[in-house]
Design a protein around this nucleic acid. Structure first.
Lengths: 191, 191
DNA sequence: TCCTTTCTAAAACGTTCGTTACACTTATAG
DNA sequence: CTATAAGTGTAACGAACGTTTTAGAAAGGA
C-alpha cells in the first residue's frame, strides 16, 4: 500500500531548489535530485522534459516567492525611503528564514553558469531583472522625481553588490552595509 | 624546420585567459584550449598538471595584471577621494583596453562555478579578495579615519555590484553608476 | 472488472570530457 | 654523432552524466 504523500512533481521542485542553487546547476547530477526527491528518472522527464525544464520551473518558484516577500516588506514600510530600502529588509528576512538556501543569488548564479541559456530559463532570468528594475524605478520616483532612473540604477547596483559579496568569504554582513549605502545615496537625491 | 614562436606554455595561458572566463570554466573543453593554443594535450598536462592547474595560473596572471592596472590609476590620482575611487577608473580602462575579455569578473565567476575549488584555485581567489579589502581599507583611512573599515566595506560592496551588474543585460553603464554612488558614500564620511 | 493515468525500478545508450599512453620528431649539449 | 630532454599528434581509456527505454505496479473512475 502506498502512503499518500506530496506528489513527485513537488518533491522534485523542492529538491531542485535546495540543491541546484547551493552546489551549482552543472555540479548537481540529476541522480542526486532523484535520490532526494525519492523518485525516478522517468518521472522527472515526464514532468519537466529535461533538467533545464526543471531548473526553469525552480527559478519561477524562486521568483514568485521573492516577489511576494518583497511585496510584504514594501507594504509594511511607512515612508518613501523605507519603501525603497525594503528590498534589503526583504532579502534579510528571505535569507534568515530557513526557506530556500543558496550560495548567493539563484538568478545571477544561473546566468553566470550558462553563457547561453535555453529559452525558458532565459525568460525567468529576464523576468527577474525586469521586476527588479521596474519596481525600483517606481519606488524611486517619489524620492528623486525626474532623476528616479539614476537613483534606481544606483540601488539596483548596490543590491547586486550585496548578492555578489556573498560569494567572497567576507566576514561583514553585506545586507547591512548595502542598506546603509543605499540610504546615503537615496538621501543625496532628497534635495 | 620549426619556426621559433612563443612557447606552448604561454600560448596555453593566453588561450585559457581568453576562453575560460568568457565561456565559463566548465563550459570550455580542454580540446578547445588546445586548438586555440595550437598545441597538444600532452604539453598541457606536462606543464600544468591538470585543467585546474592551468586555470589557477591563468587566474594568477589576471590578478597580477589587475593589481598593476589599479596601481597605475592610484598613482595618477591627485587627492584622497580620487585615490579611493581609482578602482573604478582602473576597471574602466581594464575593460576598454582589448586585453583579456570576460563576461564579468574572472574571480567571482570562478567562485560561482566551483563550490569547492582545489587549493591552488582557492588561493588565488582568496588573494584577490584580500588585495581588494586591504587596499580599500588603506585608501579609506585618510578619508574616514577610525571609520575606515566601514567605508572600505561600502566601496567593496559597490565594486562587487558593478561586476555583478555586468551579468544582467543592463543597458546603463554600471562602472559610471558605481563610481558616482561610491563618491556619494565617501563624501558622507567627510564630516 | 477494465481502463487510464501516474509512478517506480533498473538497465542501457550515447555523448562529452579530463586524462593518459604511445610513438615520433625536434632542439640542444657533450 | 649521439644522447637526453622537451614537445607534438593521435588515439584511446575511463568515468560521469543527461536521457530514453522497458516493464510493471498502484490508484481511481466508469
Amino acid at each position: 500500500m502506498m502512503v499518500t504523500r506530496t506528489p513527485a512533481r513537488t518533491r522534485l521542485l523542492e529538491a531542485a531548489d535546495r540543491q541546484l542553487f547551493t552546489r551549482g546547476v552543472q555540479a548537481t547530477p540529476v541522480d542526486d535530485l532523484l535520490r532526494e526527491a525519492e523518485t525516478s528518472a522517468a518521472t522527472l522527464y515526464a514532468q519537466f522534459g529535461s533538467k533545464d525544464g526543471l531548473l526553469a520551473e525552480a527559478l519561477e518558484g524562486r521568483l514568485a516567492n521573492w516577489q511576494a516577500a518583497w511585496d510584504a516588506h514594501i507594504a509594511e514600510a511607512s515612508d518613501d525611503t523605507s519603501r525603497l530600502l525594503a528590498i534589503f529588509d526583504a532579502l534579510l528576512a528571505y535569507r534568515e528564514r530557513g526557506r530556500p538556501s543558496a550560495r548567493w543569488c539563484a538568478f545571477l548564479a544561473t546566468a553566470s553558469e550558462m553563457s547561453d541559456p535555453p529559452k525558458p530559463v532565459r525568460s525567468v532570468l529576464e523576468a527577474d531583472s525586469a521586476l527588479l528594475r521596474k519596481r525600483l524605478l517606481h519606488l524611486s520616483h517619489p524620492l528623486a522625481g525626474e532623476r528616479a532612473a539614476d537613483l534606481a540604477d544606483a540601488v539596483e547596483l548596490i543590491y547586486s553588490g550585496v548578492l555578489a559579496s556573498l560569494l567572497r568569504d567576507d566576514p561583514v554582513d553585506p545586507i547591512a552595509v548595502g542598506r546603509r549605502s543605499a540610504a546615503v545615496v537615496a538621501a543625496s537625491y532628497g534635495s
